[in-house]
Design a protein around this nucleic acid. Structure first.
Lengths: 247, 247
DNA sequence: GGGACGTTCCGTACGGCGTACGGTACACCG
DNA sequence: CGGTGTACCGTACGCCGTACGGAACGTCCC
């Protein structure tokens, strides 16, 4: 397994692609849009590890090298995929309370990660400055409008919430994928693991881990990653509420 | 870039490796420990994308296939790397206040991610149940001891903090790596990006993004990812404090 | 000392990857 | 109909993880 980073090619070319300047269509009907769509479909289904230029090309009934007429390389293709899916979530009028708005933003991001788990693997520093990223940023900032926070605090607060969502969504999404990926339910996994662990783990040495681990295992279903997501989100929003109140 | 998942081989073999049961040393001095150490060094330096069995073997002056005498495959090797680095942080006696303790836990995890950025890319569902993971869990639960929370809430609260740290550390670490990886400072990157963006971005359409983005850019240095990390952490802890108080 | 055996080490090979390079075949313009 | 630009893509290179089978070695028994 490795990690996908952004394209490092000509920034002007990348920007033109993101904003679909000079969008052509070849004689076989190939286009940037179709390539990006096929790539997203592949990554959604089999994970980003299974995304290859050859497979994208196969899916489109085209030779692998034909893709390079439209896209400079795989890095740039991933950038395009990212901006593309960032445009998917509907962005309805937001409710009146900032807290309900921010909750909506958080859950909508979770849903996006759920739909496209590979988003969690692509770097977010130096993001692809596409139209959908910008629209998303604008929309999400709107959640905090009217709270009286300074512009800088607005950005920082949103960043913190998105950081939390990223981390909690990682746990939730991975946990949801694990059974499929491994062909083993959580229960089955534990049934294999528990007796092995028992042989090497000394509860005397780590009493807290033993006690709390057992309690957490017992309560599984009540405290799965989805509930952990909501719990942490509410705590974070409580803290933000206090911050807003005292500002 | 792809993503590294855990080994999917024989769980008993994996467990034996993690706990170093039956640790041998070959005639060339090869051993699981030396392989894991070499792999960590490679991943720390060049990222997990640059970690390959052949490079690990080269580093040890050994043929690639020799590694497979000690380690079933790359997935298991990554598991071993993870448990190994989880054992690195010192775990001193914790301060008296739960809040100071939890802050310590959060910052210590950030430091770990900084030291081993590739940790952010490996899946955490179905974690490798090694000695150091368990020790870490036990130690970190200790931060919340004495707060009066139930065992289940203990686990959930810790999970939430770690989720936040994971997300915020992703941003901080990637942002710190970006200049090296791209050979371009943040300023240089913006100098290239800004004029391109100006051509396609309409501030009228996204007034909030334009205003706040400008303010955030202006304040950069004051609100870099490190400060965002601390800001969000304090908000989250504030929320947890309220939760503890009302429990 | 000699032989047998188990383990360690690894050369080779297979199927996959991203993509550089250069050629072919088509659409369009004159 | 001929010329030109571009879309398409076959081939090849250097990587990857690892299956397979053989070679080299340490150890033990006779």
């Amino acid at each position: 397994m490795a990690v996908e980073y952004s394209g490092t090619g000509d920034p002007a070319r990348s920007m033109a692609l993101l904003w679909r300047a000079a969008d052509r269509e070849g004689r076989t009907g190939l286009s940037v849009d179709r390539i990006v769509a096929a790539a997203i479909e592949l990554a959604d289904g089999d994970g980003i590890a299974a995304l290859s230029m050859r497979k994208v090309a196969d899916k489109l009934g085209v030779g692998a090298m034909s893709l390079y007429t439209y896209v400079p390389g795989k890095g740039e293709l991933v950038d395009l995929m990212v901006d593309q899916v960032l445009g998917e979530p509907e962005r309805p009028e937001l409710p009146a309370s900032w807290r309900a708005r921010l909750e909506h933003v958080a859950r909508s991001n979770l849903a996006l990660y759920r739909a496209h788990p590979w988003l969690l693997q692509v770097g977010t520093a130096r993001p692809p400055m596409g139209p959908n990223l910008l629209a998303k940023y604008d929309y999400e900032l709107g959640a905090l409008e009217g709270t009286g926070l300074s512009d800088v605090d607005l950005d920082t607060t949103l960043t913190s919430v998105l950081a939390y969502v990223n981390g909690a969504a990682s746990a939730a999404v991975e946990s949801a994928q694990a059974p499929d990926r491994s062909g083993m339910s959580d229960e089955a996994w534990w049934e294999v693991q528990a007796p092995l662990l028992e042989k090497v783990f000394d509860p005397q040495r780590f009493p807290l881990a033993a006690r709390v681990g057992a309690a957490a295992g017992e309560a599984y279903g009540l405290i799965d990653p989805d509930h952990a997501f909501e719990f942490g989100l509410q705590r974070l929003l409580d803290g933000i509420e206090a911050f807003i109140a005292r500002n």
